[in-house]
Computed example of a mutant assay.
Amino acid sequence: MRPYLRLARLDRPIGTWLLLFPCWWSLALAATAPGYQFGSPYTPWYMPLLFAVGAIVMRGAGCTLNDMADRDFDRKVARTATRPLASGELSMRQAIAFLALQLLLGFLVILQFNNFTILLATASLLLVVFYPFMKRITYWPQAWLGLTFNWGALVGWAAVRGDLSLAPLLLYIGGLAWTLGYDTIYAHQDKEDDALVGVKSTALRLGHKTRNWLILFYSICSLCFALSGWLLALPWPFWLGIVSMVIHFSWQILRLDIDDPHNCLYLFKSNRTIGWIFLAGIAATSLASG
């Protein structure tokens, strides 16, 4: 089972966290916003667990699809040469079967939600399918990743409310900017190898201007998240979470060394802390209100 677990990146859970947090943020926002009543038929107690399972399965499916598309590139890059498909540890036929299994499990999770959420979640597959090819045609594949990884910001709200509104849309846009920031940091680990094999990224596009762009990305993220809470008239704990998040973003920007892969990986992983900070701020609003 180990090659399959590695193909799904279960040995590297940070990606699952970054996919899951927008879902949980949106769930929490929808449950905290005015008009929500606990016990709604749309919000069973196990809904956060469903999103967790869905994030694990769909992140694994995305990684499997990505490795299927990139196996020839991965063989030429030191960090990815030992991946199961690149190294020949698994065949394409095995990867296709594993992908089908993961998609089936993901579909079973989606079926637990209301009809609007099922349609909305299914639409994200278009983003998932095309993401592996973006790095071949644009220096901004991180933007496509942001569109994909933050789709849960829409799905979480829809699962609770059965609709969409401006608040989750702002959360989605903010999440896109957040992903542009953290995945640009991540991409600096591979920029030399990417340039050699012809793969594009924001790390190559932005280069030594990365720090200034991170200020922009993280500012947009913080502003959109703040506006989503302002629209819902959330109390002071939410704003304490926003301030704490801005402090953490500032720390990332100050600590960044784009020429140190270990530093880039460390700062990239620290975005899990951002996820918990913002989630805690939203969750604490219910205590302040109650």
Rank of each mutant, 00 (worst) to 15 (best):
G175T: 11
F249R: 05
L20M: 01
D259W: 01
M92W: 02
V197N: 06
A159Q: 08
Q142R: 08
D74E: 03
F133L: 13
Y139H: 11
I14P: 15
N115Y: 13
T202S: 15
A233Y: 11
L7S: 11
I137G: 10
S270M: 08
G146E: 02
W239C: 08
D257T: 07
F98Q: 00
P34R: 00
L127R: 00
I282M: 14
K191I: 12
F225D: 02
L180G: 08
L170F: 09
T273R: 13
H248F: 12
S270T: 09
S250Q: 07
A86V: 02
L176Q: 05
S286L: 14
I173F: 13
A55T: 07
R71L: 01
S222Q: 11
W251N: 10
F268E: 01
L279Y: 14
Y42A: 08
N212M: 08
I253G: 09
T285C: 15
L7Y: 13
S228H: 06
I274D: 14
S228I: 07
I185K: 13
R255K: 13
W213K: 06
L240N: 02
R79L: 06
K200W: 15
F278D: 02
P3G: 02
L50K: 03
F51E: 04
F73D: 01
G281T: 10
F225W: 07
R83T: 03
P261D: 01
W144Y: 14
V197Q: 09
I220G: 04
E89M: 09
I247L: 15
S222C: 03
L206A: 00
Y172P: 00
T184G: 12
G241M: 10
C63A: 09
I277N: 09
L101Y: 05
L125P: 10
A288W: 15
A167E: 12
P132W: 01
V243C: 12
G281S: 11
L204F: 10
L145K: 11
S165N: 14
